[in-house]
Nucleic acid binder design. Structure first.
Lengths: 146, 146
DNA sequence: CTAAAACCTCAGGTTAAGTTGAGGTAAAGC
DNA sequence: GCTTTACCTCAACTTAACCTGAGGTTTTAG
């Protein structure tokens, strides 16, 4: 607990497989935190590693950094987050992830049918859908933890 | 067939629910084509509507415009694409879409377990995974149509 | 025939999520 | 003690997928 209780940017970057500039960037966005040593260099608590892995996992789920920041805002400020804290976070994402998978599946199921068959007609086709009710549940547009 | 055989940008934009600037942009990217009337204004064949709806559908699947352009390159140049042409296209996307859904599902299934339980340890956890073999099948990074 | 609506081009702006580089300081290895 | 890494800040650049506005022309409606 003594020897690696605080990490340098370089160490964190290496262990997480991200660039130092990414850590600067995340810090600027309020996603991670650090303190400075005597020479003004960043030092991190080990729990930054978990934060970063959660960020990366969430990004793979299609969650934006802004939404991640919002979710992180519910983590305790004064103590290191524990299992229950993280569990709450992942449960919130899981629900929306379920919705996203459902939407993608539905889209997949109409894909070959609609594009392939020629049904893309103005009113009926779920893919064509010019008024774009579908757009709201699109892959890129999904709001998580909204 | 005479009265609406060629459409103006405004008409296409309205019918597809996109802005005129988007059509300019798509044309510039080679995704759609037009010819000009005497006064240098764009005119479109009706099959542009299908192209645009396919673009929008593909985008909802997470396909980038560049990949869509690549796929469109296989459409016939001299004639209006028919059902078989579109079917080929949608089949290619469907396969990758299946893969994407599978990846998302797998991620979902480890989400609550991994983030919540505290297992995010350096080597074992599929979410943590610092060397990021997972990254290659991530939501944003998925390569479609090779 | 005229005025409004629609179109044209081209340059520059926007957002997300970072990356790159310049110019300078701190820490570590030998 | 010196030299090589590692770090610092800040500004500017990058990519994707558009959007906005300026300045000017064409079409259309009355």
């Amino acid at each position: 607990m003594l020897e690696e209780a605080n990490l340098t940017v370089g160490a964190v970057a290496k262990r997480c497989g991200v660039k130092v500039s990414t850590l600067h960037f995340y810090e600027q966005k309020g996603l991670i935190r650090s303190w400075r040593n005597a020479g003004n260099q960043r030092r991190y608590k080990r729990d930054v590693l978990r934060r970063i892995s959660v960020i990366k996992a969430a990004q793979r789920l299609g969650v934006s950094l802004e939404e991640i920041a919002t979710a992180f805002a519910n983590l305790p400020d004064n103590r290191t987050p524990d299992k229950a804290d993280w569990a709450k976070l992942s449960q919130a994402w899981r629900a929306d992830l379920d919705a996203r998978i459902a939407a993608l599946t539905q889209l997949r199921d109409s894909l070959t049918g609609c594009i392939g068959c020629g049904c893309l007609s103005l009113a009926r086709c779920p893919l064509y859908n010019p008024d774009d009710k579908f757009g709201e549940i699109g892959v890129g547009a999904v709001k998580l933890l909204g």
